Measured scan of single mutants.
Amino acid sequence: MKHYEVEILDAKTREKLCFLDKVEPHATIAEIKNLFTKTHPQWYPARQSLRLDPKGKSLKDEDVLQKLPVGTTATLYFRDLGAQISWVTVFLTEYAGPLFIYLLFYFRVPFIYGHKYDFTSSRHTVVHLACICHSFHYIKRLLETLFVHRFSHGTMPLRNIFKNCTYYWGFAAWMAYYINHPLYTPPTYGAQQVKLALAIFVICQLGNFSIHMALRDLRPAGSKTRKIPYPTKNPFTWLFLLVSCPNYTYEVGSWIGFAIMTQCLPVALFSLVGFTQMTIWAKGKHRSYLKEFRDYPPLRMPIIPFLL
Rank of each mutant, 00 (worst) to 15 (best):
K16N: 06
E251Q: 04
G170S: 11
M156R: 02
W169F: 00
A83D: 00
L103N: 08
V273G: 11
F162I: 13
S86K: 10
F201S: 06
T188S: 12
K16G: 09
A130S: 09
F201L: 10
K60I: 06
V70M: 06
D10I: 09
Q66G: 10
Y102E: 06
K55C: 14
W238Q: 03
P305Y: 14
L9W: 08
Y102H: 08
M278I: 06
P187H: 00
W43K: 14
T225W: 01
Y113G: 14
H153L: 10
Q193L: 03
T120G: 07
H128E: 13
C204Y: 03
G154C: 08
L104H: 12
V6I: 00
Q205P: 01
F209L: 11
L9V: 04
I304W: 11
Q192G: 15
L265Y: 13
L9M: 04
D21I: 04
L146T: 02
Y102A: 01
Y168E: 07
Y230S: 13
P41L: 10
E292W: 04
V202W: 00
K33L: 08
G170N: 02
Y230K: 14
I304H: 02
T262G: 13
F36C: 05
S135P: 02
L65T: 00
L17E: 12
P157D: 15
T185P: 08
G274V: 05
Y178Q: 04
D118N: 10
E5L: 10
L272G: 00
A74V: 12
L269S: 03
L20F: 09
I29A: 06
N180E: 08
D80E: 02
A259V: 09
T93W: 01
A74T: 06
F119M: 15
W87M: 02
A268T: 09
R123H: 00
R300L: 07
T75S: 07
A30I: 02
Y4T: 06
E31I: 13
L239N: 03
F19Y: 12
C204V: 15
L17M: 02
E5D: 09
Y230W: 02
I32S: 06
E31W: 09
R226Q: 09
R300D: 00
V194R: 14
I29G: 03
T89A: 11
F105S: 06
G207V: 01
P98E: 01
N208I: 00
D53V: 07
R294H: 01
I211N: 05
E251G: 02
C131Y: 05
I101S: 07
I29W: 08
S254A: 09
Q84P: 11
F293H: 14
F119C: 14
V252A: 11
P302Q: 00
M261P: 01
T279V: 01
K38E: 04
F258M: 05
E144W: 10
F306S: 08
R226L: 10
G284A: 12
N180L: 03
I179R: 00
P305A: 08
Y184H: 09
E15V: 07
H134A: 07
W87D: 03
R123W: 06
T39N: 11
V267R: 04
E31A: 11
T120Y: 12
D63N: 13
H153G: 15
S254P: 02
L239W: 04
N160R: 01
S86C: 12
G207E: 05
M175F: 00
H3D: 12
K224G: 00
K291G: 00
K227W: 15
V6S: 06
D10K: 14
G274A: 12
G257V: 11
L52H: 00
F236Q: 03
F201G: 00
G253F: 02
K57N: 07
Q193G: 12
I8A: 00
L129V: 05
F136G: 01
Q84K: 05
A199Y: 15
P54W: 07
N247T: 10
P302T: 05
Q66R: 12
K60G: 10
P235K: 08
M301G: 08
I303D: 01
L143V: 01
Q193P: 07
V88R: 01
E144R: 00
V273F: 07
H181R: 09
R47G: 15
K33W: 13
C264T: 11
K57R: 12
Q192R: 10
E292F: 07
A173E: 01
A214S: 07
V202P: 15
E24R: 14
C131W: 02
F306C: 07
G82R: 12
P302V: 08
I139M: 08
Y178G: 04
T28E: 07
H3T: 01
N208C: 15
Y178L: 06
Y44W: 08
S86L: 00
T276V: 01
F19D: 11
E5W: 00
T145Q: 13
R14L: 12
P98I: 14
F236I: 09
F240C: 08
D21Q: 02
I203A: 15
Y106P: 00
E251R: 15
Y138D: 02
I29S: 05
N180A: 07
L50W: 12
V109L: 08
D118H: 03
F162W: 01
T237A: 06
L142T: 14
